[in-house]
Each structure stands twice: as C-alpha cells, then as structure tokens.
C-alpha cells in the first residue's frame, strides 16, 4: 500500500484571513521574522495496488473534481515513500 498526498492551497490572489490570523498571533508567541502565513489542506490517500501513472491520474482527477475547488484553489499530488 502506498500513500499519495494531495496538498490544496488557496490561489495566491485569494485572501486567506485564517492564515493572516495565525500570522498575527506569531509575534505574541515569540516567533518573529515570519511575514506571511497561508493555510491549506493536506489529504493523505492510502492507495490499494501499485501507484502507477494510471493511479496518479485517478488521484489528480479526484483532486480536481472534489478535493480542490479549482476556481479558488490549486493542488499538488505527490507520492510519499
């Protein structure tokens, strides 16, 4: 069994108030020098069978149609060893 990770992030031009709230809390916690935070979603998919090109294509299709809303979000797919 192999794990495929799908990371979903808001597109750069989309305002991310949650990320901003996290960023604003950092100095108070003593973490300086971080000028921007953007928050996203990580999906870990356990794949039955080989993770070949066909399997990855299916994951990309899944990410494009469901895990991400490509109107507002970008996604990346990677195999975790």
């Amino acid at each position: 069994m192999a794990r495929v990770v799908v990371d979903v992030m808001l597109k750069p031009e989309i305002l991310d108030p949650q990320g901003q709230a996290v960023q604003r809390a950092l100095p108070r916690l003593g973490f300086d020098g971080i000028s921007d935070v953007r928050q996203g979603k990580r999906f870990e998919l356990e794949i039955d069978g080989p993770v070949d090109d066909a399997a990855l294509d299916r994951v990309r299709k899944l990410a494009e149609t469901f895990l991400a809303n490509t109107v507002i979000e970008d996604f990346t797919v990677k195999v975790e060893s």
Binding site: P17, N69, V71
Partner: peptide, 17 residues
Amino acid sequence: LTEAHLLPGAMLGNNHL
C-alpha cells in the same frame, strides 16, 4: 450552486472569521 458550477465563482469564509 457555485460548487456545482451552475453559477460562477466560489464562496469562502467571512473575511472577519
């Protein structure tokens, strides 16, 4: 309706959270 792409654009959390 936006998720179904029957209407364009998308809805996100209120800017004030």
